[in-house]
Amino acid sequence: MSQRLLLGALSALVLALFAGSVLIGPAGLGPRDEVPALFGRGDDLIAMVMQEIRLPRAILGVLLGASLGLAGAAIQGFLRNPLAEPGLIGTSASAALGAVLAIQTGLAAAMPLGLPLAALAGALVSVLLILLLAGSRGGALPLILAGIAISALAGAATSLVLNLSPNPFAANEIIFWMMGSLADRSMLHVWMTLPFFALGAGLLLACGRGLDALTLGEDTAASMGLRMGRLRLALVIGVAALVGSATAVAGAVGFVGLVVPHLLRRAVGASPSRLLPASALGGAAVVLAADIAVRMLAPGRDLKLGVLTALVGAPFFLHLIWRTRGDGA
């Protein structure tokens, strides 16, 4: 399949799922009321549901999915490893720690964007730490090691907060938040995410040719004019902006960044640069579909998005491993 055709098909899929996400919800309205209400016409209450609940949720679904898919494809390309995932550089664990601290200290309840802003601050700290730890010269290995260390440290700190939490309600809230969800987000979240999404997507999409060259190893890529240090900096900041903002608004949604690039790799002829936009669209489609599914499977139970993606993603991943085992790879 040609690249243009693939991107066209994925875009159509994302559009259809976006429409589905906007039109499906517990309020049980029909599209004849919903569509005009989306543009502020008709009943005020329905207009409010559409504009302030459904629309931001669908937009965030696209942004979250595209962020995870794109970041996953970029980090797999950079590390030349199909098992790499966007959380590898420690951003998601650090963002989660920021969010957990915001819930524990009451900052999350005190101001509307307290939680996501604290999560972004956590993500920023992890980026500064990783750049400091991994040094300025190119290589991939110091980046992985620093990422693992930061993830472990942030994870331990999160556990410590839960461990010492004097307030069982806060602990409860933390656990539910960490499962990942797009429920009850507002347009404020969308506006907060957008600049980070634009920054991250811009940086990572520009890495395509560098990631292609890296297919042949760091030395060969450098001999073809690639500046490894610069590529790594763009990659770390890009992935952190996407994953940090995604975690800040939605909590931990796993497996999308790992599985989606896998799914699409063959369709793009394994080219890392072509995988970037395809994986962004694929991620958006998967998250939109999963977010529709959590609303339809258990309407009254607030099934968490991250629980569903992991529940579906993990067996699917096992299936992929099973298949590659057959190839002798």
Partner: peptide
């Protein structure tokens, strides 16, 4: 080192 990371044609 003859690195080829991905199954490129």
């Amino acid at each position: 080192g003859r690195d080829i990371a991905w199954p490129l044609p």
